[in-house]
Design a protein around this nucleic acid. Sequence first.
DNA 1: TACATAGTGTTATATTATAACATTTAAATT
DNA 2: AATTTAAATGTTATAATATAACACTATGTA
Lengths: 129, 129
Amino acid sequence: MHTLSKNQQIIFDIIDKSPEPMKAYSILFNVQKKGIKAPLQVYRALDKLVEIGKIHKIESRNAFIACQNSSCQVSKATAFSICESCEKVTEINNSSLSKYLSNFKDKAGMKYSKYNLEFFGLCKKCITK
Amino acid sequence: MHTLSKNQQIIFDIIDKSPEPMKAYSILFNVQKKGIKAPLQVYRALDKLVEIGKIHKIESRNAFIACQNSSCQVSKATAFSICESCEKVTEINNSSLSKYLSNFKDKAGMKYSKYNLEFFGLCKKCITK
DNA sequence: TACATAGTGTTATATTATAACATTTAAATT
DNA sequence: AATTTAAATGTTATAATATAACACTATGTA
Ligand SMILES: [Zn+2]
Ligand SMILES: [Zn+2]
Ligand SMILES: [Zn+2]
Ligand SMILES: [Zn+2]
């Protein structure tokens, strides 16, 4: 198991506590009191945390969320649902889906090592509005 | 069928001719001789072209590619394969995949109207290197 | 014509991300 | 423990991506 460095731990903690995906500069603003002052310090920690699978980047939102699957296959296979009204993001943990996608072969014969899937729609709360 | 405006047509043409996804500022550079001088002119055309499904955004690359499916369901269901070595991007047109994903229901009861899937790996050429 | 809608042109600015370099800390090897 | 190596940090500057605000123009349609 990976031991996080000081900056990595600070930045992981704030993302993990957040109920919603956090953007890099919002993270920066929130950790300045802890001595992290520059964007690069944040981005370096984010890169590492993504690499080891502790967080994921929501590409369509340029935001970061803590892994909810505890044993995500080291960030290699990610799926999210995103509410386009309230922007709630949830990591999908569905073995049928992950099996289907992990075994997917395309015509071009490409060998996939990783995928990212983002579903968009309305969450339960927002449908009824 | 949608008629493109002047700027939309110029920008679609250059993306459509490109063998690889194009970034906004690269598009801007390439259309300046045609009188399009400001980022916003490019981004507005891109927004519209994405909306009507003529192009798609590759979110992980901040780049834009012409739709290869001719009848993409108006940009609501997109899947791409991306070579992490040569950066070749291909739109996947696979009815089994699109059926599976269009019918996917998650536990949270979210209603999906759209998805974007990006597979990463090595293309045939790059595997053998 | 009158009205509404979509598109354009322009300047300025916001947001997201990386380059380069010096230094420090932690871990591995001898 | 001392040496070596890899990983992480601190800092300044800058690159790359994207939007706000406002005035104006073209297009469709009642
Ligand atoms: Zn995860
Ligand atoms: Zn919602
Ligand atoms: Zn398409
Ligand atoms: Zn390749």
